[in-house]
Design a protein around this nucleic acid. Structure first.
Lengths: 123, 123
DNA sequence: TCGTTACGACTACGCTTGTAGATGGAGAGT
DNA sequence: ACTCTCCATCTACAAGCGTAGTCGTAACGA
């Protein structure tokens, strides 16, 4: 239950499972590939920890397990963002966007998307 | 240099120092107050760790130290946000806002602020 | 001068994270 | 039946974190 916090490395393991589930440990490792340079053991440890945390479900498939996410990516994202935004910006989102604006990391596309989004929200 | 990562608790200690610096350990502890229920020792440990990380500077004031931030709050915010946004949204900000929109955590004020901000950015 | 305080430094200790090796059992090939 | 291979599980271990106690010393008050 209580989705405990998911660490960076654990998140990397969730990724492929959010894209396609269920997967075996090897498939997950393959999906992560060289991106991180992990031994298969490392991936397995992380999978086990995620199962322990209640973030993944297992289903037996012969002698091995297939893993699938128990928590939604959206829910996890929302939780993490909320956490950080509360901490850094007192929960207000506009300073957050302003922050990105100041850092000049917003592309024209970003701005156009935001505009469209805001218009949609206003209705 | 290389501002290493600052943990949640450490951030709580930086807070008062970003608001007013320099402060003594006791002043920092007082500023944190009951918010977190920390012993003065805990605050001192965190201060020492932040100094070790190069996030705080000390200046002697008689038999004690006064602490001041060496890293800017803005820089820290930007770094943290970038980290999370890269991880969760592939670096794009509009899905992030959309996320908040879907979660219905945007107030009318938020939306108005965002609109104003976007208009400013468009120029 | 002697005890009391107020500090910083050192030490502690259990928990989580990142990273992985070792072990033991079940299937597969021969 | 025997070995080789593949898996999950157990174990490991250093670094970082949260939380705090103890120690030595310098200053202050009596």
């Amino acid at each position: 239950m209580m989705v405990e916090r998911i660490s960076d490395s654990e998140y990397a393991v969730m990724e492929p499972l959010w894209r396609a589930a269920p997967l075996s440990a090897n498939q997950v490792a393959a999906a992560i590939g060289d991106e991180r340079n992990w031994s298969i053991q490392t991936v397995k440890t992380l999978l086990a920890r995620l199962v322990a945390k209640g973030a993944l479900a297992t289903q037996a498939d012969g002698r091995r397990f297939l893993y699938s996410p128990l928590i939604e990516r959206e829910a996890h994202r929302a939780g993490e963002m909320r956490r950080l935004v509360d901490r850094l910006f007192g929960g207000r989102i506009s300073p957050l966007v302003a922050q990105f604006a100041d850092a000049e990391t917003l592309s024209d596309t970003d701005i156009a998307e935001l505009k469209a989004l805001i218009e949609r929200l206003e209705k």
